[in-house]
């Protein structure tokens, strides 16, 4: 770590004036010093985290249940749809493709795209993952696959109806799906479509926000971390809650093992 190259900062008069104001004057009361809170002034990757109270202790075997409960509260829908009041459950990896195909078939038959094939956006980098799960082949009869490469590609379809993405991991504490995005086009897949279908492997469930942050530090490069907790919502008009303010109107999650 010590070998990290630090680019020398150019002199900046404004910055120096601001920083000078912020320096604690001698003798003034002061709390914890930076040296104690950040030992080497560098990120402590994977090292012991300060103990922080979390909202709830979640044992590993209850992780999926907790995630489902939380996410359902946030208006996430799980596939396959549970019957009646039953809670959604984790499905087998082998039935993921069938589940998505069944869902898309119903959309197709309902005439979501006026009887023509449903345009589906996928992430080019995830094509391999989706193929491994046998999804692409199964949904082929009802869908037209598109890969968003550049952000400008969206100009032609301002309101793409569907996207399928695999989440990097998820947080049980908050019911959130986490995506590490490399490009802006990838990130747009979580926001522009009306229905966002997300695949999640049960082993990628994490208990807390801290664990999610720590996990993100283990990946080498990405542009942004996006955390999605339910469909886009607004309550700006008379405090009435509505889904689909700018982002997806529906968020569909398939949790498999």
């Amino acid at each position: 770590m010590s070998s990290r190259v630090i680019t020398p900062q150019p002199r900046n008069a404004t910055r120096e004036r601001i920083i000078a104001n912020l320096k604690i004057k001698k003798g003034a009361a002061r709390g914890e010093k930076i040296a104690t809170i950040l030992p080497k002034f560098i990120e402590r990757k994977g090292k012991k985290q300060r103990k922080t109270p979390t909202t709830k202790f979640i044992a590993t075997k209850f992780m999926a249940t907790e995630f489902i409960t939380r996410a359902t509260k946030l208006s996430c829908k799980f596939l396959p749809a549970a019957k009646g009041t039953a809670t959604p459950s984790v499905i087998a990896k082998s039935s993921v493709a069938t589940t998505i195909a069944t869902y898309l078939k119903s959309c197709y038959e309902k005439g979501d795209n006026n009887g023509t094939a449903l345009p589906i956006l996928i992430d080019a980098e995830q094509r391999k993952t989706l193929t491994e799960l046998d999804i692409l082949k199964k949904i082929e009869p009802y869908c037209k696959l598109n890969e968003a490469q550049k952000i400008t590609d969206f100009a032609a379809t301002p309101f793409p109806p569907f996207s399928i993405q695999h989440a990097n991991y998820a947080i049980a504490e908050t019911g959130s799906l986490v995506f590490l995005q490399n490009t802006r086009a990838q990130a747009a897949l979580s926001f522009l479509p009306s229905k966002h279908i997300v695949l999640l492997n049960e082993k990628d469930l994490l208990a807390s926000l801290e664990q999610a942050f720590a996990r993100s530090s283990t990946s080498k490069t990405y542009w942004a971390i996006l955390t999605v907790s339910g469909p886009s919502r607004t309550a700006d008009i008379e405090q009435e809650l509505h889904m689909g303010a700018h982002g997806p109107k529906e968020l569909l999650v398939i949790l498999y093992r």
Partner: peptide, 22 residues
């Protein structure tokens, strides 16, 4: 703010971890 456990979208921009060598 609104009684949400987190908020719908929480994003980190410029999030890429620092590399050990430059």
């Amino acid at each position: 703010a609104s009684g949400q456990s987190l908020g719908n979208y929480m994003s980190l921009y410029g999030a890429q971890p620092l590399q050990d060598n430059g």
